[in-house]
């Protein structure tokens, strides 16, 4: 029996889909059988980020309505044998499925996969309720913005009410320089307010945008800082204890020279 993890945030655009794709891919890289489930019915993106859009034949709603078998709708990733995607329907809306149907679907998936990663839509309405219905635990994604933290707090409250394990926090898109200048919320500050455990911090990284547009998860690229951050998150999900990344690492000759002179 596998484990279902919902990736949620409340606020839109903080990186739920990117996080789902990368955590899924990173878990698959470590040899686990992983299924990604896109519950953003009507506004699906996960297939695009994974570069699997052109392979969709059936979708989540088809499975729930009995138009096809579950195995028919699952798309195997072109890079990893062990990674599958269950895409959302694009022509329907969130009310096409119910939390109970979702719970049954996730239970079915958990018998075949080690991890079921559920990509949750933004908001706290039907789509959110569907997404968390079958989840064993939750990862709350936020960015270091006051509004995103506020929404994350709301979501944590709802998750606690629905008894979806103890949510873990992932802080995305940190800009070390802005934090240093006091223009962006610090990690400690956010953790202090939200009062839940941190599962990872991910720096703002241009390679994420490049990868998403090309349809391949950034964890495939080993040289980017965001890639390392997501692989660390995956290791923590697997139970390893990995220290948090140092975001203030400076690279390049100039900064090394500065360091010699004690200016770094």
């Amino acid at each position: 029996m596998g484990e279902a993890i919902v990736i949620t945030s409340g606020k839109g655009g903080v990186g739920k889909t990117t996080t789902s794709a990368n955590i899924g891919a990173a878990l698959a890289l470590s040899g686990k059988k992983v299924c990604l489930v896109d519950t953003d019915i009507g506004l699906r993106n996960l297939d695009v980020v994974m570069g699997l859009e052109n392979r969709i034949i059936f979708d989540l709603v088809d499975v729930v309505e009995g138009a096809c078998r579950l195995e028919q709708a699952l798309i195997t990733d072109k890079r990893f044998e062990t990674l599958s995607l269950l895409p959302a329907a694009q022509t329907r809306d969130k009310s096409a499925i119910t939390p109970n149907q979702m719970k049954k679907l996730v239970t079915d998936l958990k018998t075949d996969f080690d991890y079921v990663i559920i990509d949750c839509p933004a908001g706290i309405e039907q789509g959110f309720k569907n997404a968390i219905a079958g989840a064993n635990r939750a990862i709350v994604v936020t960015t270091p913005d006051t509004s995103a933290v506020r929404d994350a707090d709301r979501i944590i409250g709802l998750l606690e009410k629905e008894k979806v394990g103890t949510p873990k926090l992932l802080i995305n898109r940190i800009r070390p320089q802005m934090v240093k200048n006091g223009e962006m919320l610090e990690v400690d500050e956010i953790v202090n307010v939200l009062a839940i455990d941190l599962i990872g911090i991910v720096p703002d990284d241009e390679s994420i945008i490049r990868s998403a547009n090309r349809g391949e998860p950034v964890v495939m690229k080993h040289d980017s800082p965001a890639s390392l951050a997501y692989r660390n998150v995956a290791r923590r999900i697997l139970g390893d204890s990995v220290p948090l990344m140092n975001l203030n690492q400076q690279t390049g000759i100039f900064s090394k020279v500065k360091k010699w002179f004690g200016m770094g």
């Binding site: 506020r150 929404d151 707090d153 709301r154 709802l158």
Partner: peptide, 21 residues
């Protein structure tokens, strides 16, 4: 947390935080 309301008749002692919202 944000969106939650803790209500009581009488004096109230909370051991924990009240977050924005």
């Amino acid at each position: 947390r944000s969106g939650q309301v803790l209500e009581h008749q009488g004096d109230l002692l909370l051991m924990g935080d009240v977050n924005p919202g």
